Simulated scan of single mutants.
Amino acid sequence: MGRPRAFDEDEAVRAAMDLFGGRAYDGVSVDDLVHHLGVHRNSLYKTFGSKRGLYLIALRRHLADDVRPLCDALAGAPDAAAVLRLVTSAELGLLLLATVERAPVDEEVAGEVTAALTAVDRAIGDALGVPADLATALTAAALGILLRGNPDTVATALSDHLGPLT
């Protein structure tokens, strides 16, 4: 009989989400995971299979815990400024890094990212009553604003200068 697991798997996945969301997949070594998660290397491999296995679990948890609630919140957005505020205030670091770093080289990650971004597009389109291509452009703009680090300034400028964008 094996020894009982000496760590909380849920806590380890959450810690991995934070680590991958802050430093990306290639910026995190197995040693970083072992140290940051507080697990032994053998336990990490036995539980998650590999660094990639843990990454996929962390990405899926991020999509479930952060992106899905964002999509639900977007349903009540009254205008584009509110959409921008919701998207740019969400914790989306892991999604953004997965989009630019892993999706181009990992089909499984690409599938997860595409599904998540499509869900955000759909939620924005439904909230604002705009066509799919415009919703996709709004998603791209909101994520770009998030990447640039000035979401409040942009949302305020939109509201002040253009009024409600519906």
Rank of each mutant, 00 (worst) to 15 (best):
I124T: 02
N150M: 14
V30K: 09
V120W: 00
G2V: 10
A116C: 06
A64E: 10
L146R: 07
L143N: 03
S43W: 04
G149I: 09
V30F: 05
L95Q: 00
L147D: 14
P151T: 12
H62T: 05
R5T: 12
R102P: 03
V13W: 01
V100F: 13
D31F: 07
A24T: 11
V39I: 12
G38R: 02
G93K: 11
T166P: 06
R14H: 15
G163H: 04
D66A: 14
A6S: 11
S89G: 15
N42G: 14
G149A: 11
L147I: 14
L138S: 00
H36S: 13
R3S: 13
E11S: 15
G49C: 04
A81G: 07
R5L: 15
V28F: 04
R52W: 09
V30N: 08
L92W: 06
L147H: 10
T153N: 14
L86D: 03
L59I: 06
R41Y: 07
E107W: 09
L70D: 02
A58T: 03
S89P: 09
G38Q: 01
L74Y: 00
E91Y: 14
E108N: 15
R68P: 05
T156W: 10
S43D: 10
V67F: 01
V87E: 02
V113T: 02
L19N: 02
R68N: 08
L94K: 00
L37K: 01
G38M: 01
N42F: 12
P78W: 09
L74P: 00
D72L: 14
E9G: 10
A16K: 02
L128I: 03
G111P: 01
E112F: 00
